[in-house]
């Protein structure tokens, strides 16, 4: 089937099989491999993207469902060479170790902060329920998000 999606500001049209997952479409058809697939059972959140302004898990959505949508992936949040405040904060606070979960952490937490600019540490920890990290123990991730929240205007 034919779909048309605006991804990181660019319109793409593609002919896909209807059982193509959105995460597969992003990674394999568009070669945007920053979106990761971790658990493939929609629990880990490594595949988080923004779909029409909402953070969602792209491995639990069909590309067909996103026909006509506007999507932002981890590749689309920096402003040229200038990192998004959330990326910069993860960099400065070492909010990662292996980095596998990081794109999902960043995409998910941008929306947590946008929807709650004065987010507390407790709300950050609760908000990260859908993003699993097996390296860091979350401490520096939470620190990163707190710093980014201040810079994003909280």
């Amino acid at each position: 089937m034919e779909i048309s999606i605006t991804i990181n500001g660019k319109e793409v049209k593609a002919n896909i099989k209807a059982n193509t997952l959105l995460s597969t479409f992003i990674r394999e058809n568009l070669n945007l491999t920053g979106t990761h697939v971790g658990c493939d059972t929609s629990q880990c959140g490594a595949c988080a993207i923004h779909l029409n302004g909402d953070a969602v898990k792209s491995c639990a959505i069909l590309a067909a469902q996103a026909d006509g949508a506007e999507i932002t992936t981890i590749e689309g949040i920096a402003n040229g060479d200038e990192l998004h405040p959330m990326q910069q904060a993860f960099h400065e606070n070492h909010g990662l170790q292996c980095g596998y979960c990081t794109p999902g952490m960043v995409m998910s937490s941008i929306k947590l902060v946008e929807n709650n600019p004065n987010i507390s540490e407790e709300e950050i920890r609760k908000g990260l329920e859908g993003n699993i990290c097996r390296c860091t123990g979350y401490h520096n991730i939470v620190k990163s998000i707190k710093q980014a929240a201040t810079e994003m205007g909280g």
Binding site: S42, S108, E129, G130
Partner: peptide, 8 residues
């Protein structure tokens, strides 16, 4: 679920 599940 979590905030991403609640968005769908």
């Amino acid at each position: 679920g979590d905030h991403m599940v609640r968005n769908c």
